[in-house]
Write a protein that binds this DNA or RNA. Structure first.
Lengths: 179, 179
DNA sequence: GTCTATAACCTGATAGAC
DNA sequence: GTCTATCAGGTTATAGAC
């Protein structure tokens, strides 16, 4: 792995663990085993590093969700599979934690790529919901259950609130899909 | 307002605007128009200030939710009223933003009071759901829709995802309450 | 209760040698 | 590409005078 790649991977890990505000260039360098000069050779600074990390997150997360949402099965089944996918709940959602960081929310340059991922997902979910004759506004409801589930689980330091939130949503959706 | 009270109110504002990690004692002093020595006379440090701010948030938010959930009306109507209450969406939930801050999640001293608020709300919602013969796990689902709605809205810098998430949830809940 | 001084370290970078 | 030196300012306090 190149120094550049190690810097990006270290940034991704640290952004998820500590958020943008809580992540320093120094910590990134240490985790990547790269020097100060090396880091500033490859990237213009902290924001530039974060943008590269967000782009990688976006690529990976989009690929995973697309696989589930375009799999064989009914619209309900595909959405259920996406909702129930195993997640590292207490580590937080790699994109969601960024969407909550005040410094990211306050900067259009940093916020836009995060917003872009959620826009893509919203659109993709709406397609599948429409295919199943379901209310397309449920795209936001279901995405919110996931993001809020992370919030509640991390507050409780327990995965249970996340799991209950998902099961409750699956139950309601099943009813709507059947009806 | 006493210096002490101004310090607590300034801390509440800053925690909501910038999170725990992004809030410095210096910024609190400046907003409260209090000196360094004054702040350290009233509080042991940043964490102590945050604990006082979280406690005030808890008192206020508990009172507001309790009013809605114990109002006259059917269980469905009371939950709908709570879900649809007007909120300052793009400022984020005062408790939710704390539940997402890595430094808070990583410290039991800071996380516990935040967790306590959500536990209270979960219990109160379960009471109302049970009264309406609804699945009590929906307490977490509905709380998650709210928290996740904030996340999506702030990512988009637009209240629409929050509003759609809530409307979708109200629709599903109405169906379940009718069924 | 409030003030100023001091501390030791971190922050996010820039400069220029190698 | 990577290194070390340097920088102005912030961070989270503690100490002791007033």
């Amino acid at each position: 792995m190149s120094t550049r790649d190690r810097l990006v991977e270290s940034t991704r890990e640290l952004l998820r663990e500590r958020g943008y505000t809580g992540t320093s260039p120094k910590a990134i360098q240490q985790r990547a085993d790269a020097g100060q000069g090396s880091m500033y050779h490859h990237f213009a600074g902290k924001q530039d590093l974060a943008l590269a990390a967000i782009e990688r997150n976006n690529e990976e997360m989009t690929a995973v969700a697309e696989r589930e949402l375009s799999a064989p099965g009914t619209p309900y089944e595909r959405i259920e599979a996406w909702l129930r996918r195993e997640r590292e709940i207490l580590r937080g959602c790699p994109m969601g934690v960024l969407a909550q960081d005040p410094e990211i929310v306050g900067s259009d340059d940093l916020r836009s790529p995060v917003a872009g991922h959620f826009e893509w997902l919203r659109g993709r979910l709406r397609d599948v919901l429409a295919e199943g004759d379901l209310d397309v506004r449920l795209a936001d409801t279901l995405m919110a259950v996931l993001q809020g589930g992370y919030v509640l689980a991390r507050a409780a330091n327990d995965t249970r609130p996340f799991e209950d939130a998902i099961e409750g949503a699956v139950g309601l959706l099943e009813r709507a899909a059947a009806g």
